[in-house]
Each structure stands twice: as C-alpha cells, then as structure tokens.
C-alpha cells in the first residue's frame, strides 16, 4: 500500500459526534471508539466526478429553476478556492450545494416553516473547481429559519455544501455562514465546532468580486484533508 496517506480528521477544529446542545446527536452519535484502519485503495481511489456531472446552469441558482420570473431576494455571488491542508489547490473537484430561499424556507417537503416558497427558486446547484481549484456560483442569500431544537431556536443564514476531493477520505459536508450574523452565538451546530475552527465556517464579504448593480460578493475557501508521507504505523 502507498505510504502517502491522508491526514485524519483534525479534532482541534472538527466537531464531535456527541454535542448534547444539538439534541439530535444524543441518539445518533456513535458511542464506541472509532477503529483506526490503514488507508487502502478503497479509501484512496475515488470517486471522481467531472464536467459531465455539471449542467450549464447548475452554478447559477438564480436561473436554474426559473418558471415565470426571477427569484426574490438578495442576489449574491460566492467564490473561493478548494485546497488541501498543505495549501495545494484541488482542481476539477465537485461541489454540491443546497440552501433555503430568501424567506428561510426549504423546498424540502418536510419543511413546515410558515414562510413562502419561491416558484422561481429551487435552491440547489453544483459547481466544479477550475484548474487552480477556484469556484464561483450565483445564488440568493438564504434566510434564517426556525427549528425545534430549543425554545425560539433559529438557524443562522447558511448554505450547505458537499465536497468530494480526490477520494472518500477527503469527503466533506459542511455549511457556510455569513459575517456578522447575530444568530451564530446561539447556534448549537456552529458552537459544536471547537473555537479554533469556527471562523473557518464564516464567509467574508468581498467587494472585489461584488458585481456592480448586480450581486454582493462573498469569499469562502474550503480546506480538505491533506496528505503526509510518514508511514502510518509510526504516527
């Protein structure tokens, strides 16, 4: 087996399985210690996705579900880079995303929040990073929405992301937040991340990619697990 192995999850920044303030973790968090295994071809070879998996409007959520007009809300453009822990860009990697509409309502049938659906907004898309690991997509800024975790619980504005990177070891599902959101300090999902990792989930307003008279710009970089060449047994 290769001695080039992927770093494990960095527990200094990654959330734990069990975070009792996020109530759903209580019956769903594994309780026994994880079994450490040596990475093999199963962990190091894929899956890999490419251009053929991304449709022409997948990167533009303001256009990819129009029926009779434009979606309502504040248009934004989000850009950034996907890198590994060594700062190396990850080119041609797939990013999937989904989010609530500007009123804080998900299209999902289970979402019963009494806020309007937008007939011209589905809230899901895909984008591939370019040769330099960069990506960009357009959407509508998602609204906050209430949830049942505790009395008067509201999720901060956020966009969900799913990334693959080179193989299943680098798989990442996460959420991007917005700068200055007053709900972050009350959000048990955000607060389950160790303090050192929290800022990494907050995007930055970026005037340089803000498009005049069109869309506010936000920057958000992703850092996936990187490799190291130390033999696994010696770590």
């Amino acid at each position: 087996m290769s001695d080039l192995t992927y770093n494990l999850f960095d527990r200094k920044v990654q959330p734990p399985y069990l975070a009792p303030d996020y109530k759903s973790t209580v019956l769903r968090a594994p309780t026994k210690p994880l079994v450490v295994i040596k990475q093999s071809l199963s962990e190091l070879t894929g899956p890999v996705f490419g251009e053929m998996h991304v449709g022409p409007l997948d990167h533009d959520l303001t256009k990819n579900a129009r029926i009779n007009g434009e979606p309502l809300g504040e248009r934004i453009v989000v850009h950034g880079k996907v890198m590994d822990e060594n700062g190396r860009p990850i080119p041609h990697t797939l990013i999937e995303l989904w989010q609530a509409n500007s009123a804080g309502r998900y299209v999902h049938k289970v979402d019963q929040h009494d806020a309007p659906l937008d007939p011209n907004f589905l809230g899901t898309g895909r984008v591939l990073t370019d040769a330099d690991g960069k990506y960009k997509f357009y959407t509508i800024k998602p609204g906050a929405y209430p949830w049942g975790n505790h009395y008067n619980a509201w999720r901060p504005n956020h966009i969900h992301f799913s990334l693959f990177g080179p193989n299943i070891s680098t798989r990442l599902v996460t959420q991007m937040y917005f700068p200055g959101d007053p709900l972050l300090q009350y959000d048990p999902l955000f607060l389950a991340v160790p303090p050192k990792g929290r800022d990494l989930l907050v995007s930055q307003f970026d005037l340089s990619i803000t498009e005049p008279s069109f869309a506010l710009g936000y920057r958000f970089d992703f850092v996936l697990r990187g490799t190291h060449s130390t033999p696994f047994e010696n770590r």
Binding site: M83, D84, W98, H108, S162, V173, V223, L224
Partner: peptide
C-alpha cells in the same frame, strides 16, 4: 492550513443530494 470543519447534512438534503429519488 486548518481543515474546514464539518457540519451536519441536516434534514433537508434531499433536493440537493438525492433529488430524483425524492
């Protein structure tokens, strides 16, 4: 660089990640 922390897939992933199935 520090890894981007993980967050839950949440209850509403279906239209983003498994749209045709749902």
């Amino acid at each position: 660089m520090l890894q981007t922390p993980s967050q839950t897939v949440g209850p509403y992933f279906a239209y983003g990640l498994t749209p045709e199935q749902y």
